[in-house]
Design a protein around this nucleic acid. Structure first.
Length: 139
DNA sequence: CGGGTTTGACCAGCGC
DNA sequence: GCGCTGGTCAAACCCG
């Protein structure tokens, strides 16, 4: 568990909680922000394969898998918190087994123009994985 | 035309 | 066995 405060996002904070179940790493990331969260902003390219209206939460849950599949087994689920709609909860399942997508490096740089904030943001996400890949981020 | 997204259908697991 | 729910599939659709 770790927390990062990111000034770029108004009133934003990132809370990360990771557990390992059945050899699959599951990371729960909750972020308070009013900004739209780009699905590729965590440095990987995702493809959406479904969305559901779940019981007990009026917000849609969206399902993504890593676009590097079938090489990469990682999936993520994204849903706004039932209690606080300004909180985005992302559940990552599995670990990436490939380098970060080169296009995503540019995506991050386009979205975040302040270097210190960019570093905080990237670290908050990337530290949630025990990846051994070469990230090559030019922060 | 190709790749990504949308969305209803389908399937599996679970509780009763 | 049946119904409910979450997760996935895949055809249709959209957009560059």
């Amino acid at each position: 568990m770790q927390e990062e405060n990111i000034g770029f996002w108004s009133h934003a904070s990132v809370q990360i909680d990771s557990v390992v179940t059945c050899n699959t790493k599951v990371s729960l990331i909750s972020m308070r922000t009013d900004h739209h969260i780009d699905s590729s902003l965590d440095g990987y390219k995702w493809s959406k394969y479904g969305q559901k209206l779940t019981k007990g939460n009026s917000s849609l849950r969206t399902y993504f898998r890593c676009a590097m599949a079938p090489i990469c087994p990682v999936k993520k689920k994204v849903q706004r918190s039932a209690e606080d709609k300004s909180v985005v909860v992302a559940i990552y399942e599995g670990e990436h087994n490939h380098p970060i997508h080169s296009n995503c490096k540019e995506s991050i740089q386009n979205h975040l123009d302040d270097n210190s904030v960019k570093e905080l943001f990237c670290n908050a996400f990337l530290n949630s994985f025990s990846t051994n890949v070469d990230l090559e981020l030019s922060l």
